[in-house]
Design a protein around this nucleic acid. Structure first.
Lengths: 201, 201
DNA sequence: TCGGTACTAGAATATGTATTCTAGAATGTA
DNA sequence: TACATTCTAGAATACATATTCTAGTACCGA
């Protein structure tokens, strides 16, 4: 049938990934992506309608890879084990995927969604839905059905915000989070989430 | 003497500030900045050699405004009061300066320093020096002269990283941090920094 | 071996925005 | 009132990069 592809979609995204990770979003030009891959720009456009779409796909591929393990960790039977696992997975994933983590650091769904083609509007709007539901469920199991907004915020803080903040500082320097990062995340989780269970939240 | 200025440097930076805060970095074009102010582009270039320089000045003006109060708070005599004050000032400043906080959220010193003119290289390289020294001093007072890198990291985590992470989530939605944000910051500080004093760090 | 298909190839073009340029205007001082 | 100075004005230009266009190419199945 047709001529086989010489450059796959994933190869192109990998090329963009490397450029974004090392030189920031501005470095991922079409010519740059093609050049790094040894491909002509025409081949890039054969796969992706536009640069925005390409970068959107990279972001989506990356966040999905992250979410997968996060959701798995949150499924643990023991409530505290689930919370700790999810929070630490965050740091661990960053450590094992430095370049991908930089992509998530440099792009923000909200700020980019507006300029992305409608084609992706739906996918982008709901991409966090699974995680939001899972976190909400965790909060319900922890605090009961009528969990307050404040208690939910507390869960998000410990499972997402704090691990993000810790990883960010090291990512900026291009280093993987050291073991101390896990300690800080775990300590905060213990104190702010688990230790707070007995108080009247 | 000379003709008086119709558009001051600060007016121009304010115009850029609003554009960045509402539409992201990309919205702050020279034509956009001039248009919002009712000025011709020539007047912008009369004040700023280039767009990069203009945005750099905006960033510097903003971070300095933030640092001022942070350093003051950290000077309190009582050690715990100083730490708590600095951490909470972070949230409070964000609450009172939503647009400015968005500038700090959207730009990163490291990623932009490379493209900024040499003219600012020195200023940018040392702009965090005061804060770093103050935080280091705080750590020394808290843990003694031979404070470990881990302990210092712990101080940075509670005074800077956590407040940043909390504020970020609300900023992204364009909302000021609610009172709950202060609670989370204070609780984390108490547990991870103050409560840890007795342990062998 | 031939034809159809999807791909490679990269030169040519379009586009958005930064930057420059030349002219003119407004002020205080001599 | 004339001059020096610094600013306003906005049209003209430069530039970087995304995007398009037209050929040509490699594989597969008939």
């Amino acid at each position: 049938m047709p001529r086989p592809a010489k450059f796959t979609e994933d190869q192109i995204l990998d090329s963009a990934l490397r450029l974004v990770a090392t030189g920031g979003p501005g470095a991922a030009t079409i010519a740059g992506i093609a050049g790094l891959l040894g491909a002509p720009v025409g081949s890039i456009y054969h796969r992706f309608r536009s640069r925005d779409l390409l970068l959107a796909r990279l972001w989506i591929r990356t966040i999905k890879d992250f979410q997968k393990g996060f959701l798995e960790a949150l499924e643990a039977d023991d409530l505290d084990e689930a919370a700790l696992g999810a929070a630490l997975y965050n740091v661990e994933w960053t450590r094992e995927h430095l370049e991908e983590a930089r992509v998530l650091l440099l792009y923000r769904r909200e700020e980019l969604a507006e300029r992305w083609p409608e084609e992706l509007g739906g996918e982008l709007a709901t991409i966090n839905a699974d995680v939001e539901v899972a976190v909400k469920n965790h909060a319900v199991m922890r605090y009961g059905k009528g969990v307050s907004a404040a208690a939910l915020r507390r869960v998000v803080f410990t499972l997402v915000d704090v691990p993000y903040a810790v990883g960010r500082r090291h990512l900026i320097n291009g280093e993987p989070p050291p073991p101390l990062a896990d300690e800080l995340v775990a300590e905060t989780l213990w104190c702010v989430l688990i230790g707070a269970r007995s108080s009247g939240i």
